[in-house]
Design a protein around this nucleic acid. Sequence first.
DNA 1: GATCTGCGTTTAATCAAGCAACTGTGGAGA
DNA 2: TCTCCACAGTTGCTTGATTAAACGCAGATC
Lengths: 149, 149
Amino acid sequence: MKLKSFKGMNCSLAQTLNIVGERWSLLIIRDISFGTTHFDEIQKSLGVARNMLSTRLKQLTEAGILRKEADDAGRSQYKLTDKGWDLMPVLLSMTHWGDKHVPDEAGDRVVFVDQKTGRPIQPMGIHDADGSRINYYDIKPEFGPALRR
Amino acid sequence: MKLKSFKGMNCSLAQTLNIVGERWSLLIIRDISFGTTHFDEIQKSLGVARNMLSTRLKQLTEAGILRKEADDAGRSQYKLTDKGWDLMPVLLSMTHWGDKHVPDEAGDRVVFVDQKTGRPIQPMGIHDADGSRINYYDIKPEFGPALRR
DNA sequence: GATCTGCGTTTAATCAAGCAACTGTGGAGA
DNA sequence: TCTCCACAGTTGCTTGATTAAACGCAGATC
């Protein structure tokens, strides 16, 4: 009774979840994006089981999200590829949702700021073709070519 | 050997994953956002096991993401709450990532358009305080009050 | 040469996903 | 009123996934 794969679903969300939808994947990716790139560092930071971490790193590397390389000391480390960095909107959306809906009494936990100005970035939101911010009830889904058949 | 909870992690991403990070949750939420609101409809649409669906719907309702109510015919249906609709940026980020990195040869699967203009919305991206689009390498994380202690 | 650190793999136990069959309820039709 | 069917779950079982801890192994340090 294998875990059901989302591969056949012909849905971009399902395809994404098939690759990064596993419990630990996004936390691993976040750690690496923060500069925690060595196996033991990630393991201690997250408290994930070592074999899980090993498996996930392998899968994410095969999926082209991570790249394994040696650092100056010859120790192996993991870095995000461009494909991996493209997941930042996903990470940021989730972080902002957590900030808003599962807050800490002491305030925000991590704030992402614009490096040039030092000011916090906007919470992730929906923008129309002109770049104006719009609401979720201002959009509607339409079937694209791949679903019209 | 219970599944490790992310609750104690003091990280907004982990808090979000603790609520919607399970395999089926986001797919269920997407279906409901598309108007597939009855138990059997969702079950057939996703092919998820009925007991899984039952458990997830219960958890998501308890988490305040869904609301259970009766439709005109008295059948029970599930709707998104505002808290649930706030997950749209997460769904859209993942959908756009899938469109880009796991494409279908036939083209896009679902396109989200601005209801007023009919034009597709922008792919989810990072915006600075002034609303200008910036890149992932233009931002950096800073520890907020909850982590400075 | 003994111990430590880094990076995993193996092992054994337990938890959760998956499937299918069953229950319970309400309405439609005979 | 009796049967049939759709809907919304629930129950029970099997198998896969997750966990923690122990083990391997190479290179560096004491």
